[in-house]
Structure formats: structure tokens, C-alpha cells
């Protein structure tokens, strides 16, 4: 008896869940997605036949069709990720704004920071070797004639005043 009750409850739960899902799908299908909803996704995708043009601003007939496709998919209850995946599967990775992080594409993510860090390292090493704490052998005369900041305006004025006299 108890077992039957449990099965009945489970069936009931299942039915409820399915109804809920169905209702949700129906609701999603019922309303046409707005242009803004379409654009929010189209913005993240690139026109597969033009060069470097996001789908939401691309004015060609082909892109208009793709936007309608997104609208249709949204109306069918697809999620944003599903739609993006559909585009990648059909048209290739070039529809994404940046290369997907797989295989060779890692070059694009790892090479620049590596080069920049290497550059920073080389520069740091070089600068450290250039730093000479107020050197004795340079002599006091030179260290006075090569002050770093000579050309500020005060000295300019003095110079100018001297000229005018």
C-alpha cells in the first residue's frame, strides 16, 4: 500500500514538473522575442561572411537573416549559450569575438603576457645595472653639472632675467 502511494506521489510529481516545463516552454514560444533580446545575443556574434562585423550592426541581408534565426531560436526557448553554440557548430569559431580557448588559440592568450613580462624583466635588469648610487669616481663636479632637473621654469626665469639686464 505504502509502496503504491509512493509511486503515485512520484508520478504526480513528475506530471507536475512536466506540466511546469511545458507551460514554461509554451510561454516562451508564445511571445516573440524583442529586438533588444535578439541584439543582446547578436552583439556577441560576428557575421560569418563579412570581416569583423558584429551581427547586431551588420546591415547586409545575410545578417538580417541571421538575426531572424536568433529570434526564432529564442522563440523556441533556446538559451543564449545554445544559440552561440549553434552558430559555432555551423559557421565555425570565427563567429565568436575572440578565439575560443582551445588548442593553438592559447597562443593569443599566453604569448602577449609572456612577451610583456619578458620585456619588463629585461628592462628591470637593465635599469638595475644602470643605477649608480651617487658615484664617487664620477667626481663632485660632474654630479653637479648633470642634475636631472635643470630645465624647470625657475632657472629659465633667472636665465631670462640675466639676459634682460
Amino acid at each position: 500500500m505504502k509502496k503504491h502511494l509512493r509511486i503515485a506521489l512520484q508520478v504526480l510529481a513528475l506530471v507536475l514538473i512536466l506540466t511546469g516545463v511545458w507551460a514554461g516552454v509554451a510561454a516562451a514560444q508564445g511571445s516573440t522575442p524583442t529586438d533588444d533580446e535578439v541584439n543582446a545575443i547578436a552583439k556577441q556574434l560576428y557575421c560569418p561572411v563579412c570581416e569583423n562585423t558584429p551581427l547586431d550592426v551588420c546591415p547586409t541581408e545575410a545578417c538580417r537573416q541571421w538575426r531572424e534565426l536568433i529570434r526564432q531560436q529564442l522563440a523556441d526557448g533556446w538559451s543564449e549559450d545554445q544559440i552561440k553554440q549553434y552558430f559555432v557548430d555551423n559557421y565555425g569559431a570565427r563567429v565568436l569575438g575572440e578565439p575560443p580557448r582551445t588548442g593553438l588559440n592559447w597562443v593569443v592568450y599566453l604569448l602577449p603576457p609572456a612577451l610583456i613580462l619578458a620585456g619588463a624583466f629585461v628592462l628591470f635588469r637593465a635599469m638595475r645595472s644602470w643605477i649608480k648610487p651617487t658615484s664617487v669616481e664620477a667626481g663632485p663636479a660632474e654630479s653637479k653639472t648633470i642634475p636631472l632637473v635643470q630645465d624647470d621654469y625657475v632657472s629659465k626665469f633667472e636665465e631670462e632675467l640675466r639676459k634682460r639686464k
Binding site: P48, V49, A62, Q65, W66, E68, L69, Q72, N90, Y91, G92
Partner: peptide, 28 residues
């Protein structure tokens, strides 16, 4: 069919009554 959307492609094929084998080349 070069880089196209399937629904529109079908409309096109229907419009011109094309019945020779046709297939999509979405990934070029």
C-alpha cells in the same frame, strides 16, 4: 549553399522549385 541560414535557404529552394541535390556549406 554558402554560409546561410537553413530556414531562408529552404524558402529560396522552394521559391525556385529547385530539386537537384542541395546541401549547406555553413563552415565553408
Amino acid at each position: 549553399d554558402y554560409v546561410d541560414t537553413e530556414p531562408e535557404a529552404r524558402v529560396y529552394l522552394q521559391k525556385f522549385g529547385i530539386d537537384f541535390p542541395n546541401g549547406p556549406d555553413m563552415g565553408t
